[in-house]
């Protein structure tokens, strides 16, 4: 403070530092967020734009040509094969979603409400997590010695006299596809539901019991409504993973079943990129519609 200072400079001084901070600080978050924005822009937005553009291009057996034709969409949407593949994909989505939801909920419920120490909860949760951090392809292959014609399950069933001859439908069938998908994707349902369940205030459960609710009533009237955001997040994961899946369908059905993803992958291997792109746009729209439907039913924003 100088002697000459009067009212106006001090008022400027008290105003100046906040203004300076307001100008100097905001740059930092932009610099910090820039790498994420640049990477997602270059490797997510740009590629999706490329798919949309190429879906209007023309092609022959050798290469693709810049053009603006709607032929790819007409061929794809006008074909009976596309629509039956669509329906088959939705069938896998519905079955796998229903199974992972039931399995995932009870596993998460057991971990959250029946395991008493948080240390034990962590250990058991890690036991569930570890297989999901290993290779999906290896986990698929690992069903072969179990389900195959001479596999463990068939040998056991024949030996016990339950079936007269080895069951053929166990491997390379739609049954095998669903089994492998549940095996691969169940954790994506367990984790979000577990997260919401452990955060439920235990006094709510106590209050319901004091008010005379049975275990079943507590489950259906207290716990499940509070677990909805977790169920929604898990459902988004499972639905989108199954919708886009092609490797499980290709490997576990032995070429006897189809899905949108597999159709796109086959077109890619035949170098029919514009046709693959048109189907990819259709798949993307389907994924976004499914997400919108789930988000419309359950508000997950407070979970984030």
């Amino acid at each position: 403070m100088t002697v000459a200072a009067d009212a106006s400079p001090t008022s400027v001084e008290t105003e100046a530092p906040p203004r300076k901070r307001r100008l100097a600080l905001p740059l930092a978050p932009y610099l910090q967020a820039a790498p994420l924005a640049l990477i997602l822009g270059a490797f997510l937005l740009l590629p999706i734009a490329a798919i949309v553009i190429v879906s209007f291009w023309d092609y022959d057996s050798v290469q693709i040509y810049p053009a603006f034709v709607t032929l790819n969409y007409e061929e794809s949407l006008g074909s009976w094969v596309t629509w039956s593949t669509f329906l088959n994909t939705l069938k896998f989505v519905a079955i796998v979603w229903a199974i992972t939801l039931v399995v995932g909920f009870w596993v998460a419920y057991f971990l959250a409400f029946h395991v008493r120490t948080s240390k034990m909860q962590t250990v058991l949760f890690l036991v569930c997590t570890v297989p999901f951090l290993t290779s999906n392809i290896i986990r698929m292959i690992s069903w072969v010695p179990f389900l195959g014609r001479n596999g463990l399950l068939n040998s056991a069933l024949v030996e016990l006299g339950i079936v007269p001859a080895p069951l053929e439908f166990l491997l390379f069938s739609e049954f095998a596809v669903v089994l492998a998908m549940v095996h691969l994707y169940a954790l994506f349902m367990v984790t979000p539901i577990f997260n919401t369940l452990v955060r439920i205030d235990r006094s709510l459960v106590e209050a319901a019991r004091d008010a005379g609710a049975s275990s079943w009533q507590i489950l259906t009237n207290v716990i499940i409504p509070l677990a909805k955001p977790g169920i929604a997040i898990g459902s988004i994961f499972v639905v989108t993973l199954v919708l886009g899946d092609f490797i499980t369908v290709r490997f576990m059905s032995g070429g006897q079943s189809a899905s949108m993803g597999l159709m796109i992958a086959n077109q890619i291997s035949l170098l029919q990129y514009p046709a693959a792109a048109a189907n990819a746009v259709a798949l993307l729209i389907l994924v976004l519609l499914m997400m919108a439907a789930i988000l419309k039913i359950v508000d997950i924003r407070k979970e984030l």
Partner: peptide, 26 residues
């Protein structure tokens, strides 16, 4: 930006693969 990051999770892998392959080709 947050929703962009989330949508990166739900866009099927095969689309990311195809899109990046096409972008590089173009």
């Amino acid at each position: 930006l947050f929703y962009l990051a989330i949508s990166s999770l739900v866009v099927p892998s095969i689309l990311v693969s195809l899109g990046i392959g096409l972008s590089f080709q173009i």
